[in-house]
């Protein structure tokens, strides 16, 4: 089994529900051809660096999956037939991949990322607390001065 990742750009005016429906269709295509979806992200509406079909914005969707060449062919055919798709790109990222192992790896990586995202928030909280403390101290000093 090989690992592939496909990024495709959906017309920005399409609703989130429509994008989700489309993504589910592609996921089912992958599963029907004995592939496994490893990762899936709707990355949201972004400005395009150049206009595609007169559109300045697009909704980016990213799918990471395993499978053989038939899966890629079928996924790309589905994308090509859909008129809501502006552009897509499939990249091979691994050879002889075990889907279960990769799924676990991706899960661990995501957890780490979430932790890293949470860590600055905790630090910021601590900073605001220390700020409050210094405020109290300055207030106390002012009170003393007044007395």
């Amino acid at each position: 089994m090989r690992e592939y990742e496909t990024t495709f750009i959906v017309r920005a005016e399409l609703s989130d529900d429509a994008v989700r429906q489309l993504s589910d269709r592609i996921k089912s295509v992958i599963e029907r051809h004995n592939g496994a979806v490893l990762d899936f992200q709707i990355m949201g509406r972004q400005n395009l660096a150049y206009r595609i079909e007169k559109q300045a914005k697009g909704n980016y969707v990213f799918i990471d999956y395993t499978g053989d060449t038939a899966v890629v062919a079928e996924v790309e055919r589905t994308l090509r037939l859909d008129e809501g798709i502006l552009k897509f790109l499939t990249v091979k990222t691994g050879e002889n991949v075990d889907a279960k192992v990769r799924l676990e790896e991706i899960r661990v990586r995501k957890e780490k990322l979430a932790e890293a995202m949470a860590a600055p928030a905790v630090a910021a909280e601590a900073a605001s607390k220390s700020e409050e403390a210094t405020e109290e101290v300055t207030e106390a000093i002012e009170e003393n001065a007044n007395a």
Partner: peptide
């Protein structure tokens, strides 16, 4: 690859169109 997916421009002239 990023050029294909319109993350970055192929040429500068295209930037002008994107920011209309």
């Amino acid at each position: 690859r990023a050029r294909i997916l319109a993350y970055i421009p192929f040429t500068a002239t295209q930037v002008r169109h994107a920011n209309f």
